[in-house]
Design a protein around this nucleic acid. Sequence first.
DNA 1: CCGCGATAGGTAGAATATCTACACATCACG
DNA 2: CGTGATGTGTAGATATTCTACCTATCGCGG
Lengths: 102, 102
Amino acid sequence: MKGTLDMLILQTLTLQPQHGYAIAQHIEKLSEDVLSIEQGSLYPALERLQKKGWVTSKWGESPTGRRARYYTISASGRKQLGKEISSFERALLAIHRVMKHA
Amino acid sequence: MKGTLDMLILQTLTLQPQHGYAIAQHIEKLSEDVLSIEQGSLYPALERLQKKGWVTSKWGESPTGRRARYYTISASGRKQLGKEISSFERALLAIHRVMKHA
DNA sequence: CCGCGATAGGTAGAATATCTACACATCACG
DNA sequence: CGTGATGTGTAGATATTCTACCTATCGCGG
């Protein structure tokens, strides 16, 4: 699904700060492999979110001992997430109205 | 919503053959003005659908007496619509699983 | 009669998002 | 020693959509 990556990432980060690779794995696993987050989408998306101030990041160490950049959702990020969820649901309802005939 | 325009157009054409302007109006009205189909998206999309063989078109006359190109969904278009609906629903479920926590 | 909004079709170019395909590095395991 | 998993990232192509135009006809109010 196009245009939902930011929302999915932000949602994932509400659980806990995570590094990029883990975010992608989390989403793929929860979606039962329906959604796949390519690296070429993931990292630009994370940069985008950071540039907008919706996430912050710092270098850390992953559970496997490797260097990893941990992302944390900010207050404005949570606000943005709320907006994205409601506009997503709004659009969904609208599509539903068109598709379910009438 | 990105990537759903083709589906919405094809769905609209299952009701009856229609010209571009009417398709856009139909979708906008049914969606209660949540979705808006810009001409710059609509006509390229119709060309795309035609190139793929999912719709056919011919010149006709609109109820207001103006020249208008009428689009009709083809058999392969209906097949494609089915595919798009199921992949849409599949993706939707996947997103739901990610968003509704877990 | 004249202008304007609605109806109808269309294009050009920019912006955006995503994907494919790389490159790099470390670690564990066979 | 090689391969797959973990981890970050970039370059370039592709696709879709949007903004902003252009053309033309019709009906209506002033």
